[in-house]
Nucleic acid binder design. Structure first.
Lengths: 330, 330
DNA sequence: ATGAAAGCGCTAACAA
DNA sequence: TTGTTAGCGCTTTCAT
């Protein structure tokens, strides 16, 4: 009780416990070569003095902070908060803090985020990179343990967690076909490095014998406004389309709205299937039929895979299975 | 080009520029006592070697990282991503990284977040604290520059940014009255430390002469499900209520759904006004009449106020004005 | 205007 | 099993 608000250091603990500071370090970091009795005593002293190790000093030695980075294009896009929630919970459970970098899917911002992450000495990074190329991603993966989401691995050292887009797309298109829609169109998000959904769509349509599938894809920004515009373009070009598959729910919602504005109703004259199953999807009228991906689980898994990597395991590659949720719009 | 991936340190720069390392430090930190010529030369060398100062080493000296913390109850609640977006953008513009702590409005989690923030040596913190009491908040504010959102200042050292709930509530209730709704009820969020909306509601109703206003408030968790349940309770207790004001849009949406399930339609038999104007509000059917608060601007302002504090200015207190957005539900 | 010395708090390597 | 020695890269005195 000598007062003052000076920091309690490892030396204070060592002195109070009657050991060297190395022993304190061993006790708190669960290193071996320490007797159980000493360990207990030191831990008790730490508790008593309310000692908190300096993250800076520790980082200086280890070159690794207790922090992981989360890179995403736009936290305001409803898909990402759900994922982020899973990331936060899983990270907190492991005593890791999460630094979020918002990039707007801009290549410069993604690169800058990578630099900031490395400079900050983050223990690892989780990223939804949409603009950076594989070479840049591989380079980042060499400087720091990295897990990329929803994208093929650019490199053996980079782990991945993906949702099975092909399966999801087949689910969506299969459903539309089974409901009797012979002519399908796709509203694609103008998102680089994400060709899977479009490819799967073309594949399914090709197999089903629909003529000229590629001409039935319209790309636009993956937003509500983008979806409305894309739907108008699609129908202007191909008035016979009655089944619409959207890259994500935001686009699908825009499509439903554009239909309503044109006096048509999704689920009746024309069917719309979204992707992601964001919270909003179930609350709309008509509620949106969509491919559900477990976003919270995706976030959790990203952290789990990163944690394995931090523990020295090789890069894993996991895939999450989507499922179709049939509601009113298709 | 001697190779290796060893870190470029301040000494490397000093050597290359032919100066001492404090001169390098002076140059990069814009301290005085350095000739313009030297400064330029050092900066050029820094550029050339792609030198990035170690955050750890710097933090060790200064006890301050280039990181700010953002504490919020639930990133998956649509209000917060919109605010977070403003925080991220404003922080990035100032070269600050943002560490996000999700608390679920739990007192233990909020306290733990505070501890983690201090331990990490964050430069400052921005928080939506819903469970922590004023004493704990004031204590945190003494250890680190702190800005609290949507809550009265617990202490002279703590800055605040708030939306004017009283004004918003008056707007909402005034609108309901002007539409001829004589009997109003409120769906309150069961959120500690947020009595303003309820208080303003009681005040307005008291002034308008409605009997027993307090009995017309039903509290529940601020979610869609909570809103549906609260609405059923409210109408069971007071079947004569025709105007409903909700603590937030999630509650309001739940209320609209409960009405639909009961064969009634918001905006016709009964009016519902929400609060926040989350993205979803405009997309629903009927679209939600709600009190709009500029969430992005709130985030931006929180960072601005924190930045002023970091620059040594006294704690500020700002208020953002809400406005009513009239749509179909009321 | 510049440089030399000191030390922030911790952990890795080695010695005892 | 424990302690000692060194030093991570930076900024802050203080001297020049």
């Amino acid at each position: 009780m000598t007062g003052g608000s000076v920091r309690v250091t490892i030396d204070d603990v060592a002195r109070a416990a009657g050991v060297s500071r190395q022993t304190v370090s061993r006790a708190m970091n669960d290193k071996g070569d320490i007797s159980e009795a000493t360990r207990r005593r030191v831990l008790a002293t730490i508790e008593e003095l309310d000692y908190r190790p300096s993250a800076f000093a520790r980082g200086m030695r280890t070159q690794r902070a207790g922090t992981v980075a989360l890179v995403l294009p736009d936290i305001a896009n409803p898909f990402f908060p759900a994922v982020a929630r899973g990331v936060f919970d899983a990270a907190a459970a492991r005593g890791l803090s999460v630094v979020v970098h918002n990039t707007d899917a801009d290549a410069g911002a993604e690169a800058e985020a990578g630099r900031a992450i490395v400079d900050a000495g983050a223990a690892g990074a989780i990223g939804f990179f949409e603009a950076l190329d594989d070479a840049a991603l591989a380079a980042l993966g060499r400087r720091i343990p990295l897990v990329v989401a929803d994208r093929p691995a650019p490199d053996g050292a980079v782990a991945t967690v993906r949702t099975d887009f092909r399966a999801g797309t087949r689910l969506a298109c299969g459903h539309l076909s089974s409901r009797g829609h012979a002519r399908l169109g796709m509203l694609d998000g103008a998102v680089q490095n994400k060709p899977e959904r479009r490819r799967a769509f073309l594949e399914v349509l090709g197999a089903a014998g629909q003529p000229d599938p590629a001409d039935h894809v319209v790309a636009g920004p993956p937003t509500v406004a983008g979806g409305a515009a894309a739907l108008r373009h699609l129908l202007a070009r191909h008035p016979g389309v009655t089944g619409v598959f959207a890259f994500n729910d935001l686009l699908a919602i825009g499509a439903v709205q554009a239909l309503r504005a044109a006096g048509r109703r999704a689920g009746e004259q024309i069917a719309v299937v979204g992707y992601d199953d964001i919270t909003m999807a179930a609350l709309l009228d008509p509620p949106l039929t969509t491919v559900h991906t477990d976003k919270y689980e995706l976030g959790r898994t990203l952290v789990e895979v990163l944690a394995h990597r931090l523990d020295g395991h090789p890069a894993e590659h996991r895939t999450l299975a989507p499922r179709l949720v049939i509601r009113g719009s298709a």
